[in-house]
Amino acid sequence: MEDPAKKYFTPKATDRDRAVFEAGLALGMVVHQFTGIPIKSNSDVEIIEKAIEKAILSQPYRVNAVARISKRFNHSPSNPYDYSTLKTSDLDVTVEVKYGRVRVRARLRYIKELNFNLGYIEDIEEE
């Protein structure tokens, strides 16, 4: 598939560069679009996980996405003020991007030893 936006990128950018760039954009979108969303119950968690996956897959060159929210939410249905908000540390998201002949798998998750929500490249394959 020809990329209609390719002409806007430097000719020095390889397919590998673009695949990594696109994966990083996808993970950044998840952090900035979904953190802070109110969650009341575990059924909300399942819906939000699917919404995150669908949002990622709506973007160009994303071929797979898996979103998991690690925290479980069991707030009182009778108390309208009893809810939580999604934090980046609750997320474990994997995105796979295929651009040209390159496939990148990137992940966002909380790393305890770093005490940080790290987005990183898990794998790069070139055909």
Rank of each mutant, 00 (worst) to 15 (best):
N74F: 13
N74T: 13
V45T: 13
Y61V: 10
S58M: 06
K40F: 11
R68D: 05
A51T: 09
I52E: 08
E53L: 10
P60Y: 14
K54I: 15
R72Y: 00
K54A: 08
N64E: 10
D44I: 05
Y61N: 12
A51Y: 11
P60L: 12
I39A: 04
E46Y: 13
N42G: 07
S70C: 06
V63I: 15
P60A: 14
K71Y: 07
K71S: 07
P60S: 09
S70Q: 13
N74V: 10
K40Q: 09
I39K: 08
V66F: 00
I48N: 01
Q59Y: 01
R62M: 13
V45N: 01
A51F: 11
I39L: 15
H75I: 04
E46H: 10
E49L: 10
E49K: 13
K54C: 01
Q59K: 13
E46N: 10
N42F: 09
N64H: 12
I56W: 00
D44Q: 06
E46M: 13
L57S: 03
D44S: 07
I47R: 13
S70N: 14
I47K: 15
A55R: 14
N74M: 09
L57M: 15
V63S: 12
A55V: 05
I47G: 04
I48W: 00
S41C: 04
L57Q: 10
A67I: 05
S58V: 02
N64A: 15
S43M: 04
Y61M: 05
V66I: 14
V45E: 01
R62C: 12
E53P: 08
N74K: 10
K50Y: 00
Y61T: 08
